[in-house]
Design a protein around this nucleic acid. Structure first.
Lengths: 126, 126, 126, 126
DNA sequence: GTGGTCTAGACCACA
DNA sequence: GTGGTCTAGACCACC
């Protein structure tokens, strides 16, 4: 009912970084930009980045080392878990939306399969 | 990379009403709130609602009758088409997000099927 | 370049009455409504109707008889001439518009013939 | 029976621009005046021009490019279609008026042909 | 600079 | 009452 909502910036940035990690753009043990660099790069207040890094640390996705910087976790299993969490969130949201407009599980599977095969054929043509 | 984007209000309201119709909260031939009522109800300018209703009319989802009001189309097939459009949009968004984190089509189908059967079992227990 | 123009009311009413006469709704020698009646009937100022009747008299389409009223001319040839004038005006305006968008005489004839035969066929189906 | 009707300004301006395009005064891919320039030039509110340009875009007659301006379509076939639409509207109006005064299709064709040949002869004399 | 969105409030025709 | 049109002027993102 409220139309001016948008996701808080720090959540958007957190998701951004999670995606970078899951996609492998940010590799295991890689150093993130410093808070100052990152804040300039994104045109955002340094406090916002600080919050992002702290939340990511709480979720054990990065770890800070005093005087050195912030680093992606060395633990690949955490990254795999992260990937599965994101995937599961997507699935939950998808199913909820489809059920909301009255589409049952079997139809979801059919429609997904059909769309994927359409998409596949289109891409072969390019 | 852009954090301040927001869907225009008129599009949000359009989607809102489309959902109401697809969900059956607004039935075939039912009268919508008048532009002025709706604008007060939503705390939005009447011109914004007028635009919403006009766009919906262009898409043949509602029709306006001067002096009487705005009504949901009597044509059930248009509503079915609308439902399929919304479903397709959901699928496209879902697939895009899954591909973005590196999950292929086969995995999407598997994960969806697994989630649905889990959910099914949980609901049987309740 | 001026967008708020419209035909003066008295000209609109004159044309209305000419059409009524040409179509035979107002017959030869028939009495028109009195100025007062006509003005009430049309929701228009009596002076406007008076001007209409005077102009029509100047064009010899009606004649006033003191104390009796205003009557359609008894002269059928004037009515025929009127019909031809209206037709000719229509043709002139039509040709001018078509030339303005670069359509030559032959094309006008073709398009007219085609439209008339389409229309003819449609009307047979009803 | 209604004497105070007036075409909405935005429709008048739309037709104006369509004519300019069909006549070739506005050429393929040519930039229109910006919304603000056009509104000043025509002594009309910018929103009115914005509506005109949006409707023309919906009809694929122009396309807008953010930050650059509004341009006539590069697609000549759309312009040809537009020309034919305008011609057809003229024909429809012409036929309706002629029928209204009791002139049948054959007579319309004759009168048009006669007028065109008269006109043709006159122009040769000049 | 461009167009896109939104507000506030006016007057109109129709019924 | 309804929707339709129009104005005046605001702020925004994109280029």
């Amino acid at each position: 009912m409220i139309y001016n909502d948008r996701e808080p910036i720090y959540l958007q940035i957190m998701n951004d970084i999670k995606y970078q990690i899951v996609l492998g753009n940010l590799k295991v043990e890689e150093r993130l930009l410093s808070i100052k660099e990152q804040s300039q790069h994104m045109g955002v207040n340094p406090n916002t980045i600080a919050r992002v890094y702290s939340e990511l640390e709480r979720e054990q996705i990065v770890h800070k080392e005093k005087g050195l910087g912030t680093f992606v976790t060395p633990d690949e299993s955490i990254i795999m878990k992260l990937k599965n969490e994101i995937a599961k969130e997507n699935i939950i949201r998808f199913v909820a939306r489809m059920q909301k407009i009255g589409i049952c599980g079997e139809n979801m599977k059919d429609m997904l399969a059909r769309y994927l095969s359409e998409k596949h054929n289109e891409e072969k043509l390019l």
